[in-house]
């Protein structure tokens, strides 16, 4: 293979990981946009619901995504809503506590070992003639789910009254409340949507990696990096830099080693903080809706 083909191969190999990083970044942006809180428990929720989805799959034989997604809502209702009553920094710290609790809970229930998650679609490279591409049908499904979610969420946030109210609640909740909207509902909706997106990401990444209580920790760092570089407020930024981070990791892994990949992401974050600390897609007014 010539060098260009090698590069394209590495890039295609990073598509699925990039799409999942983008989804987690998207979930982080959703909670940030609805409540000005970064939910570091997001990957804990994703991990926990992936284990539940795995249990459902083992018990029923069904590869049922919805099981994990719906349980993301339960995690929110039981844990994050009471925390929201404190100030945002308290809530952010509390999400770390929830992450640790979810990881400990998962270890107690399912054990701390890596377990395999079944694949609903073939994960082998797509064959065209006598050529095998370094991308599978499953990778394309992950990419498709991510694209559909981004499109759906963008339409929801920009075209519906509830979506607009949800965005507005983060900036001037008093105005939104005086307009007759219960801000608690818009907050709940934002966190629940993020929970669903994060859970989907967990269930999508588990079949192409493996599942353990701590297996998504790196995903949190990468998704947070992507969300920050994207500007934290920008859905497009989260998705673009989530995908970009996945592709970068794949390329670094290919040319160097898997151990160097997270380092590359952190260098990217450091460069971003040095050169454009607000994020690439950050708008001038930090309080814009």
């Amino acid at each position: 293979m010539n060098p260009l083909e090698v590069l394209v191969g590495y890039l295609l190999g990073g598509v699925a990981n990039g799409a999942v990083i983008a989804l987690i970044a998207l979930a982080l942006v959703l909670t940030w946009r609805s409540s000005r809180v970064i939910n570091f428990a997001q990957v804990g929720q994703a991990m926990f619901t992936s284990f539940i989805a795995l249990s459902v799959q083992q018990a029923t034989g069904l590869w049922w995504l919805a099981a994990g997604a719906v349980l993301g809502l339960v995690v929110y209702l039981l844990t994050l809503r009471p925390i929201r009553r404190s100030d945002s920094s308290g809530a952010i710290i509390a999400t770390f506590g929830i992450l640790i609790a979810l990881q400990a809970g998962a270890a107690m229930i399912w054990g701390g070992d890596l377990v395999a998650f079944p694949q609903p679609f073939p994960a082998s490279g797509i064959e065209t003639g006598d050529r095998v591409w370094p991308i599978s049908i499953y990778d394309l499904v992950v990419l498709g789910v991510a694209a559909a979610l981004v499109l759906g969420l963008s339409l929801f946030l920009t075209r519906t009254g509830i979506g607009l109210a949800m965005r507005a609640s983060a900036f001037q909740p008093e105005v939104v409340r005086l307009s007759g909207i219960d801000v608690r509902k818009t907050l709940a909706l934002g966190w629940a949507l993020a929970g669903i997106v994060g859970s989907l990401a967990g269930v999508l990444i588990a079949p192409i990696s493996s599942l353990s209580p701590n297996s998504f920790d790196l995903l949190l760092i990468l998704a947070f990096t992507a969300a920050v570089i994207g500007g934290l407020d920008s859905l497009v930024g989260a998705v673009m830099f989530g995908l970009g981070t996945g592709l970068l990791l794949s390329v670094v892994t290919g040319y160097s080693s898997a151990e160097d990949a997270p380092l590359a992401a952190l260098i990217l974050l450091a460069l971003n903080l040095l050169l454009k600390p607000g994020g690439v897609f950050a708008r001038p007014g930090a309080r814009d809706v």
Partner: peptide, 15 residues
């Protein structure tokens, strides 16, 4: 902003 969201919290979301 408020009037649209008030008239059906979820109905508005589904269009």
């Amino acid at each position: 902003l408020g009037a649209r969201a008030r008239h059906g919290f979820f109905a508005d979301s589904w269009g």
